[in-house]
Simulated scan of single mutants.
Amino acid sequence: MKVLVSGGMGFIGSHTVVELINSGHEAVIVDNLYNSFKSVLTSLKEITGKDIPFYDVDVTNEKELEEVFEKEKVDAVIHFAGYKAVGESVSKPLMYYKNNLLTTINLAELSQKYNVKHFIFSSSATVYGDQESPLKESMRLGETTNPYGETKKMSERILTDFSKVNPDFHIVLLRYFNPIGAHESGLIGEVPQGIPNNLMPYITQVASGKREKLFVFGNDYDTKDGTGVRDYIHVVDLAKGHLAALTKSKSGLSVYNLGTGEGVSVLELIETFKRVNKIDIPYEITTRRAGDVASVYADGTKALKELGFKTKLTLEDMVRDSWNFEKNLK
């Protein structure tokens, strides 16, 4: 298949492009470089040995986006393009609603117009809200705590309604848990702009000396050691989940969790990083962050049964590859 990857220069998108090409598919990247870098294209070529078509296009610009559909004649869409910082979404809600919903609508409209029947959407476990884990796809959607999460939930609703009038389309909503790690080459990985919103890049920046210490938000949760528990999945496994969804999904709407099914606490992640990479991570316990929940991890039964998807890379792999990428950053 030829696959249009919106946001394909980003953390998850770039790894998915690699897996698509490694599996014999073609990728076409559309990305406005708002939260990514053009140098990623050079890294992708080095990893895959392929020249990958890249369009510096904002997916909210339907006219420019349609020119890509017209020229490339793609068979599928994987939609990653969206703003993703929770804190920023609270301070700039209109920006998040406008961008994240309009990108979804534009891609769905053009997929319908050009008869592109495979559509995979990058969603999030955020849509479950604060419910008891393990989280299952059959659960009702919960109350989101920020505009970012709400845009994921609303985009899911848009695509659900879209699927009802396009029953021959293969539409897949993939609910991610916590992607970390990097490609084993160390050439692509997560590069946050400014202060990292996510735990792993903050840890690697402390390890490299860019930051003095890590702040652990709360140690009084009802968890194994009092710190928050999350389901960390290697970004390469996550990328392979998209490949499984692309090739094995059925007509209509499908929803899958992509996680390991295991909860890991903040302190466990820190200690694993220290042990594997043989480097100290100074940290300070501070107060809880508003909106954080105690424990979030996936039930991966449905993805295993219907897609044959199961993660293979370990927590040790995740922390090793994250640090390897950080060390390679110029």
Rank of each mutant, 00 (worst) to 15 (best):
M1E: 09
K2L: 01
F11W: 00
G13K: 00
G13C: 10
S14E: 02
T16I: 00
I21Y: 10
D31A: 07
L33K: 07
N35Y: 13
T42D: 14
K45E: 15
I47K: 05
I47R: 04
D51S: 15
D51N: 15
D56S: 14
D56I: 01
D56V: 04
D58F: 01
T60A: 01
F69K: 10
E72A: 02
V74E: 06
A81K: 03
V86H: 06
G87C: 02
E88S: 11
K92L: 14
N106S: 03
A108R: 03
A108W: 09
V116S: 02
F119I: 04
S122C: 04
S124C: 09
S124K: 05
T126D: 14
V127I: 14
Y128W: 14
S133Y: 12
P134C: 13
L135A: 11
E137N: 12
S155P: 05
N166F: 10
F177G: 09
P179H: 09
L187A: 05
V191F: 09
P192V: 08
G194V: 11
Y202L: 13
G209H: 08
F217K: 07
D222F: 12
D231H: 12
H234Y: 12
H234W: 09
V235E: 00
V235G: 00
V235D: 02
D237S: 10
G241C: 04
A245P: 09
T247F: 03
S251H: 09
S251F: 00
L253E: 07
L253T: 05
V255F: 12
V264S: 01
L267P: 03
E271F: 06
E271G: 00
F273I: 01
K278S: 15
I281W: 07
I281M: 04
Y283G: 10
I285Y: 13
R288P: 06
R289P: 00
A290Y: 10
G291E: 02
A294D: 15
V296N: 05
A298Y: 02
G300Q: 08
G300H: 06
A303R: 02
K312D: 12
L313C: 07
L313E: 08
T314D: 12
R320M: 03
R320F: 08
W323D: 11
W323N: 14
N328L: 01
